[in-house]
Nucleic acid binder design. Structure first.
Lengths: 206, 206, 206, 206
DNA sequence: TATGAATGAGACTTCATTCAT
DNA sequence: AATGAATGAAGTCTCATTCAT
């Protein structure tokens, strides 16, 4: 009835240490969360996928909530890193925006990125929820800042930076729902098409 | 012996009949679902908001799943109706697209529309899940059709209709997350701004 | 969703008075109890069969338990009456026994008789349960008495009267489970066959 | 904080393994079912008797229905085994019948056997109900076959084999209701008396 | 008399989490 | 480190019964 539990346990072949195993757990969790949804993913499902039993998970994590939190943190931090990368480049505002979006597009279609977009933060309690909200808002604010910079430097047409942020993020976030790696388009294809749609919005008027 | 449970039960003031009360339940459910998430909304929460006890709900609905299903159905049907309205107009492809989007924008910010966008259909079992997926896909396909029509009639610039659909829907769907009626912009304001962002995508090249 | 509730309500055509309607309820209850079992029969099922609503039943009965109790009482009283009929005849012990069994056989295949045999008295609470147990025991004791009389008057072979009672009652009670009126044998046919099986037990040794 | 729940949990003294504990649960369930009836037996009652909490039961069984089903299956299988034992012996038809009945009598007075006789299969849903009905019918048909064999080999008087089956089974089944191990007669005593009652039915005419 | 609405009590079941080995 | 066993808390749903009209 239960899948036999021999062999390939967490990291047996990977010779992973405690932290390595913890990371494997988070990866598998992110995968299951995007596959089946968060609330529909039971700890026992996660354990099964890792060929261990439920209590074993508790050697590496403190609670289900922590798993979600960690997964989101990983995703958030990568997004923040993408923001910094763009901001720290020497491009124009428009250039920075495109740098970010090209990176973000790729982020939306891996498990951690998808979780950040699809996870309902209301499943987290108090402090953690707020932490995640702020991390997401940080990205939005930075993008709006970059857009503002683009408007000032003339590379982006005048507009409400927050609204353009929402439009862009909404557009690219949709990737996490419908994009499948097996499809005929690559993320890069879609990214360029999406950027094209916003051409007039993002290009300063001649 | 028990404190009498006076006053405002389901529809007492509205003098609603059975179907009317059922609708009130669905409205309140849609509200709670968007406020707190689906899985986080317990039947007792819903009952409390309606000043009744849990079992009372079962006079009007058969299960919690049915509530979600009905809420989604209401939202889906309105979306389908918006599609038909646009399609049946005598506008150009671009005109039809704008008619739909202006209507859809309003739909994304009421409770039923928000549920359609935010609900994770994986919480539904089998048949219902499929039904909802198809209803959503119907809208996407119709929009892509309208875009195709616009491309052919010259009102919309040549592009991949499905990608433009995803971009537009992603953009407008984001309203359901961040838009609040108490803010300083109206949905209509935002809609026009959003349409402006896509100007070059949607307007045929001169 | 619910069967329309017009026309033929309880006793509309029968012009039955309160007690008459009450009896109709008990008959229908007995029928449902034998059809579907006691615990599986919901009051709403009973009400539906009578084309009334649940609360209406409470004009005629006080509780579900009372229905069962009344049904059992009717069955018990008929059994007691059969016992008296046999006992008061001027036959030999064997004759009386046969008179009872021929009557009892018919009783086991109508709804009230079936309920007496098949109802689990543990569903009744305290006093009523005891009352029903005693009524059933009364029949057993009387039959054993009649057998004792037959042994003394030489019409029945010497044996343990209570054991023979159990054997006979077990045999005839089985009718309530397997006998169907649509079958090819009548109750009377079966009765005679059953009596034949016990010929040596019930006939005194030559 | 809570009074520790020491001592005799499921199988603590018996050092039972998982399957052993599962069997202990079924035994206790069978006991409670015969004591209090099926529907009246709550899972919490069962858990209490085993000094565990309700959820613990779900380590061993999937649902309450499964418990009943398993209990009935155990009883059915023993009955089938009794049938085979009788059929495979080298006795005459009558001899085989007596072998079965002597075994069956003992089966009727243990918890599993009682459940088979007293359980209302209508509490089971669809497939399981049918499965149990067929298992019971299998026994009846085999007994009728054995009786037919007895009639042909001259060891049993000519009669309707199915009717005799019903009479015998009805008689012996009654044991499950009235027989108590504390009484002054043993099952074997009663069995011989019962067989005696059917002497003329079962012995071929001289 | 009859009923739509409402409910209290309680059942089964699930699942994240802890305990003891 | 790992696990089988156990559990507390909670959620959905059922149903006999009462209330108010």
């Amino acid at each position: 009835m239960k899948p036999s539990r021999e062999a390939r346990r967490i990291g047996v072949k990977e010779k992973a240490d405690h932290d390595g195993r913890r990371h494997i757990i988070l990866c598998e969790a992110a995968r299951l969360f995007t596959l089946n949804g968060f609330q529909n993913t039971k700890l026992v499902d996660l354990a099964d996928r890792l060929n261990v039993t439920k209590p074993t998970l508790y050697h590496y994590i403190e609670s289900k909530e922590e798993i979600i939190h960690q997964v989101l943190t990983i995703g958030n931090e990568r997004n923040a890193s993408l923001v910094r990368q763009a901001r720290d480049s020497s491009e124009s505002g428009l250039g920075k925006l495109e740098i970010f979006l090209r990176g973000y597009a790729r982020a939306t279609v891996d498990d951690f990125g998808r979780c950040v977009i699809l996870a309902d933060p209301r499943m987290l309690s108090g402090r953690l929820r707020e932490q995640h909200r702020q991390a997401y808002r940080y990205v939005l604010d930075e993008i709006a800042d970059i857009i503002g910079e683009g408007i000032r430097d003339g590379s982006i047409r005048d507009c409400d930076p927050h609204l353009l942020t929402f439009a862009l993020m909404g557009t690219f976030n949709s990737l996490s729902i419908w994009f499948h790696h097996e499809g005929k388009m690559t993320v890069e294809d879609v990214t360029e098409a999406f950027l094209g749609f916003f051409e007039s919005a993002m290009a300063a008027k001649p």
